[in-house]
């Protein structure tokens, strides 16, 4: 039989821990390419823009059914990135300004939607938008070790965890498949085009996967954590130098580590220190920032060489 303490942990904390770790690793992996392409702020903008999509999905179907809200969020994130490139290109406005225009507009639309539609009463709470709903990921574990270790048990995990797990498997596979063209396209887009590699297509595929991961992570983790995990681990890994594959893996590792230790710190360590848990998403985000700060302090600046 599984002892009670472990049972409690499995019931309350296992699913959120798994969700945070899977999402953090995947976002760290995908964030490395955003950072390389200098599009970190676009990830930020997309994470903010998810909100109006969720609200629209909710308003159109009138329910909190996951699928329409997922589709709505995906559409909104896609719209945000399309609008940013459109405005930059045709309005001749510098990218950071275009990003500022687009994501604030969409986020304002989302807030208005939440407040005015009555969605707020149905638990599309604005606080959840920021810190997610990790605590709602609740799992009823089997009662014996034998059952716990059987493969079929995996499927009893909450839907969010399964989706994030699927993305965590799919992402490295896709990246491995398109690795060489992706490297060429990210390093030197012009050259990749002249070699007939369709860099736009390859990058769009990775970008689409990034969008899906942002949206899938959003509900459980909230917007702050998504942005932090897209940028901080990759920025920290970037300071280590080395070759591309090492950088990408390190970014995923930093992300996953922030997820595991941040979550355990907030839910297991904090209660013994201050007598109660603290916000887990916020802690994971802060920890990823701390890793960046440490790496930056250890970083040998080039001018000193």
């Amino acid at each position: 039989m599984i002892p009670d303490a472990l049972r409690t942990f499995l019931t309350l904390d296992f699913a959120p821990l798994l969700a945070v770790t899977l999402a953090a690793g995947t976002l760290g992996l995908l964030g490395s390419f955003l950072v390389l392409e200098r599009r970190a702020m676009i990830g930020d903008a997309m994470a903010h823009s998810v909100l109006p999509g969720l609200v629209a999905g909710f308003l159109i179907t009138g329910s909190r059914a996951p699928f329409p809200m997922f589709v709505g969020a995906l559409a909104a994130a896609g719209l945000a990135s399309a609008a940013i490139s459109f405005i930059t290109r045709y309005g001749r406005i510098d990218p950071s300004t275009a990003i500022g225009v687009v994501f604030t507009s969409l986020f304002a639309l989302g807030i208005l939607g939440v407040e005015a539609s009555g969605a707020r009463n149905v638990d599309l709470d604005l606080d959840c938008v920021l810190s997610g709903q990790l605590e709602l990921l609740y799992w009823r574990p089997p009662s014996t070790y034998a059952e716990l270790l059987s493969p079929a048990t995996v499927l009893t995990l909450p839907r969010e965890v399964l989706i994030l797990g699927a993305l965590a498997v799919l992402t490295p596979l896709l990246l491995a498949l398109v690795w060489k063209p992706l490297t060429a396209a990210t390093f030197d887009r012009t050259y990749a085009t002249t070699r007939g590699l369709r860099p736009t297509l390859v990058r769009s595929a990775v970008f689409a996967l990034t969008t899906v991961t942002i949206v899938a992570s959003f509900e459980a983790l909230g917007s702050i954590l998504v942005v932090a995990l897209l940028t901080c681990p990759a920025a920290a890994a970037r300071l280590r130098g080395g070759r591309l594959a090492g950088f990408v893996c390190m970014s995923a590792l930093f992300g996953a580590a922030s997820g595991v230790f941040g979550y355990l710190g907030a839910t297991q360590l904090a209660p013994t220190v201050i007598g109660g848990s603290i916000d887990a998403s916020g802690t994971v985000a802060s920890l990823s920032g701390l890793i960046l700060a440490v790496m930056a302090l250890r970083h040998r600046s080039r001018s000193a060489e």
Binding site: V35, R38, R39, A40, M41, G43, D44, S96, L130, S131, I224, L225, V227, A228, L230, T231, C232, A234, A235, R238, L239, A266, I278, D279, S281, G282, T283, V284, A285, S286, S288, G289, L290, L292
Partner: peptide
Amino acid sequence: LPADTATAAVSSASFGLGIV
């Protein structure tokens, strides 16, 4: 680090700290 990466990293991590 590119300016936009530094901006996004600092703003999201410090916002997370604020929530904590």
